Amino acid sequence: MRGLFLDAVDDLAGVFHRVVRPTDPAMDVLERGEIPPEELPGLTAGYDFIFDDHTQLPTEAMRGCRGLKHVIFLGTGARSYMHPEQLVELGIGVHIIKGYGDTAVAEHSIALMWAAARGLARMDGGMRAGNWIRTEGLELTGKTLGLVGFGGIAAEVARIARGSGMRVLAWNRTPKSAQGVSFVELDTLLAESQVLSLHLLLNDETRGFLDAERLGRLRPGAILVNTARAALVDEVAMMAALRSGRLRHAALDVFDTEPLPAGHPLTTLANVTLSAHSGFRTPEASDKLIRMALDIACGL
């Protein structure tokens, strides 16, 4: 078995060389950004598997990758970059990696929540521009946090939030239980949450999950945190709710288009806090991610 790391940028090449072992399958590492689709057949020729961090893998382009048998996607959101079922039909198995960044993403969710509650981004930006902006913050101790989806990341968010004195509600598509977390119907969660944090996987059922109708059922003045996938939310409806004040604030780590284009409407709203899809980016999580990917490759 021989593999190719397609897009080892943002220090991932260094992580790879730090955690790789002599007994792992032979791999070549490309320190490139996103690979254009037309280059994929040529680049992957002679390889049995690839690591994909952020490169789009359109089905038609992958049809030309005749010797490729496996794609190991570095994360859980493969559907944002490819159609897994269609690749399987081409004889290419798709593997995802869960759990590597639960604590990292949870801590980022909590950081965004507190930054939104206190208006930190607006004050910081104001002072950098020579303005003295003082925002009226919101105390979160004793407030209600609602978690939409309850996997490993949400469980970590619940642990941290409970430790800071928040009441934690959760809704999940399948029954679950967790100490100190009250599982409720979605309508109840939306109506009672002062902070709503999204933790759903993106698929055909969850795409556009938080639409205008559900945003309208949110408790007025709520904070929305999204470190999952942008496509879970109707962006136009979210911006309308932010402009009207129905949403107090949105704190976002994921976007429909990444990198976020200059001048995007989200960058013009004072009640939005933005981070560059970096919730998972810690040395601890990166090491675990690449090591888990290599372990998958060892088992192919």
Rank of each mutant, 00 (worst) to 15 (best):
S109P: 05
D287H: 02
P22Y: 12
E34W: 09
G279C: 04
S164V: 11
L198A: 05
L6N: 03
F280C: 00
R32V: 14
E284D: 08
L200E: 00
S164M: 13
D187S: 15
L140A: 13
V9K: 08
Y100V: 05
V233K: 01
L120R: 08
E156V: 06
S278C: 10
E235Y: 07
A251D: 00
L87P: 04
P22Q: 13
G42H: 15
L274M: 03
E89G: 13
M123W: 09
T59N: 11
L68D: 04
Q179K: 12
A61R: 11
P261Q: 06
S182H: 14
L218S: 10
E60I: 14
T206P: 14
I50L: 10
N131H: 06
L196V: 12
M238S: 05
A270V: 11
I96V: 14
A8N: 11
D287V: 00
E235I: 05
R243W: 08
L300R: 03
R246C: 10
S164R: 10
R162Y: 02
D102Y: 01
G126L: 02
A121D: 01
A250R: 00
A270Y: 08
G299V: 05
V157E: 02
D287A: 02
I223N: 01
A228T: 00
R122P: 01
L90W: 14
G93I: 09
P36S: 09
L266K: 04
